[in-house]
C-alpha cells in the first residue's frame, strides 16, 4: 500500500514562500491563514552559526494523533497514500485535533470546520505533484511514495542524511528534511 511523503532539501530552500502562495491559490485558503509556512532555525555562535530554512506543513503522520482523537471520524487516513484528511461535513469544530497536533499544522477555517494541508490530493490523484512542489523555483521539494523503493523520495532518503520534525512525539511523520 502506498504511503505518500515529502522530502525537502534544506540546502536548496531559500524561503521564498512560493510554496505558501501556491498552496493558498490552489486550495482557496482564506486570507490570513496558511496551510504551509516557512521556518528559519538558527543555532550556534558566530562564526560557527548554522541556519536551516525549511517549508513546513502537516506531516501526514502514520500514527496521527489528530485522527485518533477525532470524535466524529472526520479526521481520517485517505485510502490513497495514507494521507490525513478532514471531511468538512463531519467536522464539528471541537478543536481536539488542533490541540493534539505536535506541529500546529491545523487551523479553524472561518466556515467552522478544521482545515489543513491535504498534500493536494485532488492533484495527486490526477498524477500531478502537490501545488507547493510543482512551483518550487529551487526544486527543493520531492513528493512520492515512501513505500516504493524505486521512487525518488526513497532514493533520496537512502542516499542522504535527513531528519524529521519532533520525532519524539512518536507520530511517525512522513515529511523528511535533507541536511
Amino acid at each position: 500500500m502506498a504511503r505518500y511523503g515529502m522530502v525537502i532539501d534544506t540546502n536548496k530552500c531559500v524561503g521564498c514562500q512560493d510554496c505558501v502562495v501556491a498552496c493558498q491559490a490552489e486550495n482557496n485558503v482564506p486570507e490570513g491563514y496558511c496551510r504551509d509556512w516557512i521556518t528559519t532555525e538558527s543555532q550556534g555562535k558566530f562564526p560557527t552559526i548554522q541556519m536551516e530554512i525549511r517549508t513546513e506543513r502537516c506531516n501526514h503522520c502514520t500514527d496521527a494523533p489528530c485522527v485518533s482523537c477525532c470524535p466524529t471520524g472526520a479526521s481520517h487516513y485517505h485510502d490513497v497514500g495514507g494521507v490525513v484528511l478532514v471531511t468538512h461535513s463531519e467536522c464539528i469544530g471541537c478543536k481536539a485535533c488542533i490541540a493534539s497536533c505536535p506541529y500546529d499544522a491545523r487551523y479553524v477555517h472561518p466556515e467552522g470546520y478544521i482545515d489543513k494541508c491535504t498534500f493536494c490530493i485532488h492533484r495527486v490523484e490526477k498524477g500531478q505533484d502537490p501545488a507547493c512542489v510543482s512551483v518550487c523555483p529551487t526544486h527543493c521539494m520531492y513528493f512520492g511514495d515512501l513505500e516504493d523503493l524505486n521512487s525518488e523520495v526513497s532514493k533520496l532518503l537512502k542516499s542522504r542524511k535527513y531528519h524529521s520534525l519532533i520525532p519524539e512525539a512518536g507520530t511517525k511523520p512522513n515529511i523528511f528534511y535533507l541536511i
Binding site: 514562500q17 496558511c34 521556518t39 532555525e41 538558527s42 543555532q43 550556534g44 479553524v108
Partner: peptide, 12 residues
C-alpha cells in the same frame, strides 16, 4: 543560541 522564526500566523 537557538532562534526559530516562522511565517505562520494562523488565528488561535
Amino acid at each position: 543560541m537557538l532562534e526559530i522564526t516562522s511565517t505562520r500566523s494562523n488565528h488561535l
